[in-house]
């Protein structure tokens, strides 16, 4: 069985991170596995964790009254998800559900926050990775918002 820091080194999110840091934050992580259909977290629950997907597919959902659970986005191997643990009030905004058997590294948010606060260099490196991921996700969502495939009938 590979140790957490080795798993992280293979994950695109952590690509190029100094080995010392990998080891350091690996201490906050643990291996997790979710059966298909299982919720990983629910809207409104306390956000304690952050996940790096190693394998599988996760759907971010929201429940729309009258329409039911609606998938906003799916995430796959190589993606990370969960950033509600960074800022107060540390509550999940969406549901996350495993669509397929999903293996991930789950990080303890309090542990990560403490390490980042304690080592500004690590915190900066970590937050830069987060910002890049969030920006990319935001671009994609903006494009989704455009509803480019929608029919607009004018004449």
């Amino acid at each position: 069985m590979k140790t957490i820091d080795v798993l992280l080194a293979e994950h695109p999110f952590f690509q190029g991170m100094a080995p010392g840091y990998l080891e350091f934050i690996a201490g906050c992580g643990r291996n997790v596995q979710f059966e298909p259909g299982r919720y990983i977290h629910r809207e409104g629950q306390e956000a304690n964790e952050f996940y790096a997907i190693r394998h599988g597919k996760v759907a971010l959902e929201i429940f729309v009254p009258g329409r039911g659970p609606t998938t906003l986005q799916t995430l796959d191997e190589g993606d990370v998800f969960g950033w509600s643990w960074i800022f107060p009030p540390y509550k999940w905004v969406f549901d996350a559900r495993a669509v397929e058997l999903t293996r991930a590294v789950a990080f303890d948010g309090v542990c990560l926050r403490t390490k980042c606060e304690g080592d500004a260099q690590l915190g900066y490196d970590f937050m830069k990775r987060f910002a890049q991921m969030v920006a990319k996700r935001l671009d994609a969502v903006r494009l989704q918002l455009l509803d480019v495939y929608g029919t607009v009938e004018r004449r």
């Binding site: 597919k57 329409r67 998938t71 906003l72 799916t74 989704q144």
Partner: peptide, 16 residues
């Protein structure tokens, strides 16, 4: 771009 629970495939733009 959007789907309900019956869709088991990807949700997101094709660029992703």
């Amino acid at each position: 771009d959007s789907a309900d629970r019956t869709w088991r495939g990807n949700v997101g733009t094709v660029a992703t």
